[in-house]
Write a protein that binds this DNA or RNA. Sequence first.
DNA 1: CGCTAAGAGTTGAAGCGTCAAGGATCCGGC
DNA 2: GCCGGATCCTTGACGCTTCAACTCTTAGCG
Lengths: 171, 171
Amino acid sequence: MTTCPEAEDPHWLDPAERAAWLALTGILFRLPSALDSQMQRVAGLSNFEYLVLAMLSETPTQTLRMSQLAVISNGSLSRLSHVVARLERQGYVRREQGPADGRSINAVLTDEGLAKVVATAPGHVNYVRHLVFDGLTEEQVASLEQIGRSILERIDPGAPFDPAAVARLAP
Amino acid sequence: MTTCPEAEDPHWLDPAERAAWLALTGILFRLPSALDSQMQRVAGLSNFEYLVLAMLSETPTQTLRMSQLAVISNGSLSRLSHVVARLERQGYVRREQGPADGRSINAVLTDEGLAKVVATAPGHVNYVRHLVFDGLTEEQVASLEQIGRSILERIDPGAPFDPAAVARLAP
DNA sequence: CGCTAAGAGTTGAAGCGTCAAGGATCCGGC
DNA sequence: GCCGGATCCTTGACGCTTCAACTCTTAGCG
């Protein structure tokens, strides 16, 4: 992101690319809002807060250290710190010292937090399915994955793709 | 968005869908940040601010009424109002009464605003090409458009897809 | 052993978006 | 001709994210 080609070469998008770009930016603006407002309405959570809880819930011990949690939930450490502070205030998460490294802090999902995820997840999945997958063929789903991976690889070369894979690295 | 199926039916995503969903959420989180920070760095503008200026510049008279501009730049009217206020302070945009309807306000791109777009657009397009299109085949580009349209149609049924088409409706 | 550099996490301030409220103008029925 | 509702836009407050310090800890190196 720091080094990138910005050579001025007015080489515009062709019509097919332009159409695709329009569709992509439309998604970029509208899908997060849709997810956020549904989540806010039915669970009183932001989409990112839910994601943090969900990631914790998918781990064997409901525990993840902050820096890992930040990566797999696609957020900065600073953002996560603020969010976990809020979630802790609401009783969904608890923070404790990691045993090995004196610098590390583990976020732990509380029972209430787990209950919240269990209560919220099905509706969330249904909504995602309704907005995205119900309208796509199998081939399109496969294509979407390939396209997404390609773009992600270009934004952040060598970045981990699957959150679960990152979580499994946990000590 | 107000009415949607939330019947609790724990019908999870299959592996292919899950992989696609991971890729899509990755894009949803990371692509906007990447675009925003590049735009901030090279032009001192947010991506949304740039979009507003760009939409105005593509219009024959560099003029669009606020409500239309809000739609084609994928934002709420309130957001646009704040943003145009900032852009006006910077001298890139001017606001004037629409002649026909006493309620309508036209946003007009100033000469400085046009110059800003002209200076910024090539680098932006190159960056978009670099992040997105350089990694995709023709078939994938076509597929991306279809997928995007499908999702957008489901988020907001009957919404206009092509900004240019909306702009052409301008009186 | 110190001593410096790098990593982990937190904090506070500043900026932006959303939401709810409000003022202004237009339209439709009576 | 006028009153009620709808449309267009703005405003202010609040909440969240980012950014830039800052603290505390660990690792490397002489």
